[in-house]
Each structure stands twice: as C-alpha cells, then as structure tokens.
Amino acid sequence: MAGDVDMATADTMYAAAATPSGVARLTLDLRAVTFFDSAAIHALVRLAGAYGDALAVLPSSQVRRVLDISGLGDQPWLEA
C-alpha cells in the first residue's frame, strides 16, 4: 500500500489482503503509507482477527504513530 489509507481505500486494502486463498502467512507492507485513519485501523484489526499470528505489518512512521496513539502499538503482528 502507498499514499492514503482512509475511508475511501480501507476496504480495498482489506479486500486485497483478505482474498488470497491458501495463504499461510501475510505480510502487509505499509511503509509507503502517508495517511492512516480510523477506517484503516478497523480494516487492519479485521485482518489481524482473520490471520492471527500469521500476520506481519510493516508500518511507516505515520502508521506507527497512529497505531501507538490508538493503543495498538504493542500488537504482536506489528513489526519494529
């Protein structure tokens, strides 16, 4: 993902990440994301619920800040 992940694009992010069948592990690369809102957080939490320990998220500094502020900065799926 790159650019903004917001109410207009969060469902697209979710659908793209949730659709691969037979995937044992998912790495969601958000290092090029510059804006991340509550709709994006919701989509990410849904993905975490679907993949559990098989999810790894690579955040940009902006995504990391939003997740820290929202109380999700210590999730096991969030890479350093």
Rank of each mutant, 00 (worst) to 15 (best):
M1I: 12
A2H: 15
A2T: 15
G3H: 07
G3N: 05
V5T: 02
M7Q: 11
T9Y: 09
D11M: 06
T12Y: 01
M13A: 09
Y14D: 06
A15D: 01
A15C: 00
A16N: 13
A17T: 15
A17D: 15
T19N: 08
T19H: 09
P20T: 13
P20D: 14
P20Q: 07
S21H: 01
V23L: 15
A24H: 12
A24Y: 09
A24G: 14
L26D: 01
L26S: 08
T27M: 07
D29V: 10
R31D: 13
R31K: 13
V33L: 11
V33K: 02
F35G: 03
F35Y: 11
F35S: 03
S38Y: 14
A39W: 03
A39M: 05
A39V: 09
A39N: 04
I41M: 13
I41S: 08
H42Q: 07
A43Q: 13
A43L: 15
L44M: 13
L47I: 03
A48E: 04
G49W: 00
G49M: 09
G49T: 06
A50Q: 08
A50K: 00
A50S: 13
Y51A: 12
Y51L: 10
Y51G: 11
D53I: 02
D53W: 00
A54C: 02
L55T: 04
L58I: 12
S60P: 10
S61E: 09
S61M: 10
Q62E: 02
R64S: 09
V66S: 03
D68W: 12
D68V: 15
D68P: 15
I69K: 03
I69L: 10
I69S: 10
G71F: 00
L72D: 08
L72G: 05
L72T: 10
G73P: 04
G73T: 05
G73W: 03
G73M: 12
D74F: 01
Q75S: 14
P76L: 08
W77S: 11
E79Q: 07
E79Y: 03
E79A: 15
